[in-house]
Design a binder for these strands. Structure first.
Length: 250
DNA sequence: TGCAGTGTTGCTTC
DNA sequence: CGAAGCAACACTGC
């Protein structure tokens, strides 16, 4: 694009790359998107019959061999230092948009975003205000980006376990005591996840890179740390895991 | 072998 | 307005 990158920020799960000239590149990785720096080579022999996926072959990336994470390139930028910025995405839900900063920031998916849970300005009082007049189940609300930004399926499960709250609990039933526990668990779980550099889903390939896998309490586990059987139910089309012994339905 | 399950969110419908 | 259900896609694992 020929524009210098001046800053990289995040809002919820949106990656915001500021470009010279007041432009903004917005990237949302959705489920399987991965934005990564490395090098890829074109494979012209696949141009005729191959899938778009097979057009670019990874050569290198900081995590060592890219497979299987860097094989599904849909967007590639050449950087000045010879490396490339690539967006890999197996399931092709990811989104990339570029435009004037103000236009991008005014799009509903950014404008309507709820508060950043790790923002120091996001106080317990602000958290409680979110619940005013809202209905629904706590698990779905935690995952709703317009309610609170950046919490998905994994960490909502972990947060609810840490707070001892059953995922089906209606918002209206949560009292001050539970809200306080929830608030503390949100901060605690997310900070720890950031420190551990997130949760890798590809089993062995994550390595030391993404450590949260190793301390998950309920998400995709058979038993909680106390040895109780984890239950799995569906809420709003998503799987929710929880410990039926330690998580109370309010 | 076939089908349920997988990290997200936006659109449609009520 | 809010909430539920589902679609977008391609692969893995039981």
């Amino acid at each position: 694009m020929g524009k210098a990158i001046t800053a990289v920020d995040r809002r919820g799960k949106n990656i915001l790359i500021s470009l010279m000239g007041d432009y903004l590149l917005l990237i949302h990785q959705k489920i399987s998107g991965r934005l990564m720096v490395g090098n890829w080579e074109r494979r012209p022999e696949n141009e005729a019959g191959g899938t778009p996926h097979s057009l670019w072959q990874p050569i290198s990336c900081p995590q060592g061999p890219l497979a299987p994470r860097g094989r599904f390139i849909h967007l590639l930028f050449d950087l000045d230092d010879g490396r490339q910025l690539g967006l890999s995405d197996l399931r092709k839900f990811a989104k990339a948009l570029c435009g004037k900063r103000e236009v991008i920031l005014n799009r509903p998916e950014i404008r309507q975003l709820g508060p950043e849970p790790l923002d120091p300005q996001f106080t317990l009082a602000k958290f409680k205000q979110l619940f005013a007049g809202r209905k629904g189940r706590i698990k779905q609300m935690l995952m709703n980006p317009n309610f609170i930004a950046g919490i998905g399926n994994i960490y909502s499960d972990e947060i609810l376990y840490a707070a001892g709250i059953h995922p089906l609990s209606p918002l209206a039933n949560l009292q001050d005591r539970q809200l306080k526990a929830l608030y503390g668990s949100i901060k605690k779980v997310l900070k720890k996840a950031v420190r551990m550099r997130g949760t890798g889903m590809e089993g062995g390939t994550a390595g030391a890179e993404q450590g949260y896998d190793k301390i998950r309490m309920v998400y995709q586990r058979k038993e909680c740390p106390r040895g109780h059987q984890i239950q799995r139910i569906r809420i709003g089309g998503r799987s929710a895991r929880f410990c039926p012994v330690e998580q109370t339905l309010f």
